[in-house]
Amino acid sequence: MTPARRATIEFLLDNLVWLMLIVVLIVFSLTVPRFFQFGIFANIIEQSTFVGVMAIGLAIVIISGNLDLSVESTAALAAMVTGLLFATQGIGLGIALEPAWLILPVSLAIAMLVGAAVGMANGFFVVRLGMSAFIVTLASFIWVRGLVVAISGGRSAQSLPAAIRVVGTADILGLPLLAWISVGCFVLFSFIMAKTPFGRYVTLVGGNLEATYRAGINSNRILFVSFVLAGLLAGVAGWLLAIRTSGATANLGVGMLFNAFAAVVIGGVSLKGGIGKLPGVYAGVLLLYSIHTAINLMGLPAHYTQMILGALVLAAVLLDTLKLRLREKLL
């Protein structure tokens, strides 16, 4: 096989999810009525924001060789704290800041802190105490959701001030600001993962922990920071969700974990660790929401969505296995 052909095949295998996304978009555009319009595409990108931002952190933890099941509850906690402090109705305390725009950075910082705190707790138990990430983050998934219900008393906070809601309503160049935020997050973290020593180490630690330890890399710190990042990004996702819904309810974001996991797996991240790239994860999120949108437009009952998504995750894992075999055969 010539090097050029080999490189082409390698490139296609690495970017299979983008290929799938393009094919799916073309098929939907041709077959689903009213699918092919700018508004729909803009909507898909906007819808992808919340799960997308969450999936970045989840992907980083999985690439480092761990697992974080708690991101959904963490996002809900960040959303509830934002709602509780700044919403003016329901259980909201309606804290007002002077000048009014200050609420934006302050609420974002608080949401990120809340998320990072949960991430640190996860990191402490998994990295320092050596407990199983699956169990630790499953426990967090439960207790953090419990905390959300506890601090809200099961009630909801509504009506965030206009100064902060602008994030959920503004458009830039015809695209919703929310869409730009998710694209921005993906660009930023793709860059960090591909171009900085930290990103390199996350991949190396996920590939062979012992080797990185021997090479003098502080592998425990990398694992810990991955958990903190996952929590922090889940916090941002929750903050965006609170703004979008202008408040928070105790069951906000239920089911996001599954979508984020599906996107990460479809995006080519291996659950074994060490393999996967963030642009692929973004394609995975977009693919997921293209399918959501198409199902909505076709007027299928919503419960079919879950069946299709489940099948899609299976297909993605199957594809991953096939890809490995294909690579072994061809390269």
């Binding site: 190396l204 590939g207 080797a211 990185t212």
Partner: peptide, 13 residues
């Protein structure tokens, strides 16, 4: 780390 390329392994750390 077999999941990374030759350069990444050579310079690890």
């Amino acid at each position: 780390c077999i999941n990374a390329d030759v350069v990444a392994n050579f310079f690890m750390g």
